[in-house]
């Protein structure tokens, strides 16, 4: 686990992003620490409201200001803090050094520009190529992402393409300037399974070919198992577990991770009787629990969990877990407080 700075392409330290609404502050991301090693894939999993997407938007500073704001923390990309960059510097990084793929291929492409124009645009901005050369490169990119008859497709508008094709165009846009880091926010959620399989395969192959580091944000544990090297599980704006993909699936330690894994109905395994569930629902973001955010739903929660927030601590096998269970104080605690039947 001792990595030198050079091995890490991105390091997020104590990132706090809040949204300020009429009803008060929502701490969407609350002290997140993450890092991605060069050429590797980090998965961020969590359910809605976990802050996983806001984390990714914060890294690229794409929040809708002034409602959403990075309050504190650092985002170190190649040794430099992105939070401190000027608007202009950020523009040069976006789409060039770090690019992003979004969830909805239907709405993420501009309906009034051809696919070719949309790819060529970022090439023109970052590589200062002329119109003709940028277009040729755009066609090449379409070919790279496996779109048949790319010359023809480049002249078409997004509505003329299927969902899977549109997501390929999105990937072409994001990889056009050969970025060092690609952030994919739910890249296949809106797609059918057989198309999802194609797109995941494509991303994997391109990553290998181009050596891009990858950050995948998803709610789908299957996608995580398929794609990632490391996994961060988020709940209510905090990372609750951060480990190797193998550890997460074979030896998960946080009660939320365990609950999440058990509540997925699996297609390749029979579950007799009912699914095991996590009781209750995600707390109101305006009134987050004082102690551990998961405590009200946790089957093991004890007194300390309700009052004191646990830290993200490393366990014996290098897995980082935010839970009192793995601390020394745990033994001193009394009975569990949530008596669920």
């Amino acid at each position: 686990m001792n990595l030198t700075k050079e091995d890490k392409i991105l390091e997020v330290k104590n990132l706090c992003t809040s949204f300020f609404t009429d009803e008060g502050e929502v701490k969407a991301v609350d002290g997140v620490d993450l890092s991605i090693e060069k050429g590797k894939t980090l998965g961020i999993v969590g359910e809605s409201g976990s802050g996983k997407s806001i984390t990714s938007l914060s890294i690229l500073r794409l929040l809708q200001e002034p409602a959403g704001r990075i309050k504190e923390g650092e985002v170190i990309f190649k040794g430099e803090d992105l939070v401190k960059k000027t608007k202009k510097q950020m523009r040069e990084i976006r789409g060039n050094n770090i690019s992003m793929i979004f969830q909805e291929p239907m709405t993420s492409l501009n309906p009034t520009l051809t696919c070719g124009e949309q790819i060529a645009e970022s090439i023109r901005i970052h590589q200062k190529l002329n119109k003709k050369k940028a277009w040729a490169k755009a066609v090449d990119m379409l070919k790279l992402v496996g779109i048949p008859s790319p010359e023809k497709r480049a002249k078409q508008y997004p509505f003329e393409l299927s969902g899977g094709m549109r997501q390929r165009v999105m990937i072409a846009i994001s990889l056009a300037c050969n970025p060092e880091l690609l952030i994919a926010d739910e890249p296949t959620t809106a797609l059918d399974v057989t198309i999802q399989a194609q797109i995941l395969e494509l991303i994997k192959n391109l990553q290998k070919e181009l050596g891009t580091s990858l950050m995948i944000i998803t709610h789908d544990l299957g996608v995580v198992a398929e794609m990632c090297d490391k996994v961060a599980v988020m709940y209510c704006g905090k990372v609750v577990e951060y480990a190797d993909v193998k550890t997460i699936f074979t030896n998960p330690k946080h009660p939320y991770t365990i609950g999440l894994l058990n509540s997925v109905p699996k297609h390749d395994e029979d579950v007799e009787g009912d699914l095991s569930i996590i009781p209750g629902s995600v707390p109101n973001p305006f009134h987050l629990p004082e102690g551990c955010r998961f405590a009200p739903r946790c089957p093991h929660a004890k007194e300390i969990c309700l009052t004191k927030l646990p830290h993200l601590e490393e366990t014996f096998d290098g897995d980082k877990v935010r839970c009192w269970i793995h601390s020394e104080e745990w033994e001193k605690q009394g009975k569990a407080v949530n008596a669920h039947e």
Binding site: L62, G95, F102, M170
Partner: peptide, 9 residues
């Protein structure tokens, strides 16, 4: 948002 993410001004 996609346009901003591409680095468009």
């Amino acid at each position: 948002r996609t346009a901003y993410a591409k680095g468009v001004g």
